[in-house]
Simulated scan of single mutants.
Amino acid sequence: MPSQLQKEIKRLKQELAEKEKLIKEQAQTFSHYKKIYGQSSIVAQIGIWECALPTEELTWSDYTYDLFELPRGTRLDRSHTLACYTEASRAELVKRRSDAIAARSGFTLEAEIITFGGKSRWIRITASIECQNDIPVRIFGMKQDITDQKLSFDHMMYLAEYDQMTGLANKSQFLLKLSSAIQGDQVASGHGYLLLIDLDGFKPINDEYGHIAGDECLKEISNRLKSINHSYKEIFRIGGDEFAIITTEIQDIKAVQKFAQRIIDCLSEPFIFEKQLLKLGASIGIARIVGDSVPDVFVNADTALYAAKAAGKATYRCYNPNMGSCAVRISV
């Protein structure tokens, strides 16, 4: 009997040793794959993160630490890491996270952070919820640095929406703004004004002094327009030497006429280019922002601009139906 018991103990010890060996091998394998996974994450520049619920205990991969410029292995406190997000991004993150936990779903978010090292970065966050018996127990996902992508996209959007030479919004933005102003007029029964501005004497300067002088003229004119009208987003360069201002703040015709004269006086002041005194002028056509479409308002303002040119330039005219129709110089 004792010998049988000893045999059983021996068998159990051998079985235990084999299991311990297996566990050790599995642990080594797990550690190996975890290391490869972590290195792959760094190479791919994708950070892995998870947060236990409801304890809010965070776990980050090495690259996530790098992303936030925090020494690897530093003890994590969610309140401290959350403080890295800008106010707008933090508010959106809190909302998306709360909604995802409530819905047992996930989300993707592009957020701006200020790293622990003081750098501004944009990151893309993906998150999923893990549940047990329909109770959320973990939220996890990836964080990726998209700063370069964001800057490239913003620059591309800037090129699409703004004139590179003057920094003013371009014609596409003008059409959107005018359409929005017309829709606002139809809803609110108010009105604003469209001012089309065409430079007088620009072509002779361009021909005599060259395109560099012409470019400097356009930059100077745009700066002067900015100094007159403080709402920069409502000033547009819509053609070679043609500008537009949309104002929904001025409701009185006398006030808009005074504004137009102020523009003419300002743009008529000479300026120096390479020791040469250059002089420009401006003619302005004014039309109320009222009608069924963008072309309606634009044609009215352009008709008034033709009338101002015909009156001897360096003046303005307000549209009225008695002006009749004319060929529109600028296509819409």
Rank of each mutant, 00 (worst) to 15 (best):
T126V: 06
A160P: 05
G210D: 08
T115Q: 11
S79Y: 06
L194F: 05
A83G: 06
Q144Y: 04
Q149G: 08
A311I: 01
H191V: 01
E269R: 15
I197A: 02
S172Q: 14
H80V: 09
I264Y: 07
A181Y: 02
Y85C: 00
Y65Q: 11
D134L: 09
I250Q: 02
D198F: 00
S268V: 01
S79I: 04
I205L: 11
S40G: 14
S231T: 08
K150P: 00
P54L: 13
S180P: 03
N322T: 14
E130V: 11
V137F: 11
A314F: 12
T115I: 07
I197Q: 04
A91W: 04
T126D: 03
V294A: 11
A169D: 03
D145Y: 04
S180E: 14
V299K: 12
A260M: 05
N300Q: 12
K21W: 06
K177S: 15
K203C: 08
A244Y: 05
L168R: 09
E269F: 07
F68N: 06
I101L: 14
M156E: 07
T303Y: 01
K10M: 12
A88T: 06
S31R: 14
V328S: 14
T108V: 12
R138V: 00
F271N: 09
A100C: 10
E15Q: 08
S128Q: 14
L16T: 02
I114Q: 13
C217Q: 14
I263L: 10
I212W: 09
E18W: 08
D148S: 13
R329Y: 02
G118I: 07
R329K: 12
Q6A: 06
G38L: 00
A83R: 14
I250C: 02
A311N: 09
K143N: 15
V294R: 04
R11W: 04
L22D: 10
I205Q: 01
L93K: 08
K34M: 07
T74C: 06
M142E: 03
E274T: 09
D252A: 04
I245S: 06
I235A: 09
S179W: 05
K143Q: 15
Q14F: 10
S3R: 14
G291D: 04
T166C: 13
G47N: 04
D252S: 12
T315R: 10
I46P: 00
D185Y: 03
R96S: 13
I250L: 11
S172Y: 05
W60I: 01
F259E: 11
Y37D: 02
A83Y: 03
C266P: 00
I228S: 12
G214K: 13
D99G: 03
G73E: 06
S105I: 04
G201W: 10
G324F: 04
W60A: 01
K254D: 13
E234W: 10
A160I: 05
S180H: 14
I135G: 06
N229K: 05
A310E: 07
D62C: 01
H155G: 10
E208F: 02
E130M: 10
K171H: 13
E249C: 01
